[in-house]
Amino acid sequence: MNFRTVRPGITAINMSVSVQIKNINKKFEKLEALRDITLSIPPGELFGFIGPDGAGKTTLFRLITSLLLADKGSIAVDGLDSETDYKKIRNITGYMPGRFSLYYDLTVEENINFYASIFKTSLRENYHLIKEVYEQIEPFKKRRAGDLSGGMKQKLALSCALIHKPELLILDEPTTGVDAVSRKEFWELLKKMQKTGITILVSTPYMDEASLCDRVALMQKGDLMAVDTPSSIVDGYNGDLWQISSSDMHAIVADLTGIDSRIEKVFRFGEKVHVTTHNIDNKELGVIIEGVLDGAKHKNILLEGAKPQIEDCFLALMDEKG
């Protein structure tokens, strides 16, 4: 006799799926939205697409969900072709479009119930799947979605995308326009989701969120500039990075630019200036900088070595590609 047991208290693990993207090209009239994108995402990965507006993130997601068709190349989700088998793909995909796809005149509960029903399921049936997220907005279930805060809208949209137990979750800029605390909470939720075995693709314009993904793709104007784990990308940074500050932060970028051929890049980074150098040590750089930044304008000059971050890598890659 065969017994199949499921341990109590443990959510049944999803069969997660892989995404294979091969030589994808997409043009909108004259604009090349995506240029020859090839990418392979294994099952269960939390994969981030990082890049500014116009990088092609949304277009790529729409191609994967088959809302758009590629000019060239192919996409396979769990081995299913996105063009011919799109109906099957849509069954196993949870998609949260860039604008939270909620009905603002419906209540939280009505939104969830509606999305559940079009996937032929119900909130009661799949409550356990979205419990983690939905619990946080459940106290407001009688409130109209339009009256929710940005963070709550986002959680509601995520609940709606998760309600049908998708094996692939695609989130288009879920943290855009959401406050810092909610962003943090949201990423924690994603991490928890990932543990159920679901494959998650997420896009974001915020570079600091890259480190939260298993692997990231840095995108710019339709090109894939780098695909790797966040730490490998940072490790691959070419040159030494320093951060400098002084009392006159307005003039400092101009004053430091073009003073020495070994000092390559100078750009504002938050409240500091980041400078990339080759073959200069701490002392020598200190001398050069003190010589350039004269004491009348710049006081309290501070020079320290800095650990490169994704944004530094992104800007460096952008420079390389021209």
Partner: peptide, 10 residues
């Protein structure tokens, strides 16, 4: 943008 979400449904 809700049409996008409906279209992606079965």
């Amino acid at each position: 943008g809700t049409m996008e979400a409906i279209l992606v449904s079965p």
